[in-house]
Amino acid sequence: MAKKGDVVINIEKCKGCEVCLAACPHEVLALSNEVNSKGYHYTVKVNSGCTGCANCAVVCPDAVITVYREK
């Protein structure tokens, strides 16, 4: 059983580039319907499949993702 993880996304800094969506191996992330104050659709977590692999955070050009993983 894979470890469980979680992500915290700084939605105000997100530019909605979708690079993290392509990097996530478990399709945990998607773009929101809402926009942030700059008008970008930001990344949100849409299911509980996160394993805390941090792939999304490593490729995020704007460093908006913080990753947690159970010990």
């Binding site: 993880g5 979680d6 010990k71």
Partner: peptide, 15 residues
């Protein structure tokens, strides 16, 4: 799965 993982000891990646 109601356990909250967002705790400092679980942090694996931040800016």
């Amino acid at each position: 799965m109601a356990e909250n993982l967002i705790k400092p000891e679980n942090l694996v990646y931040e800016k």
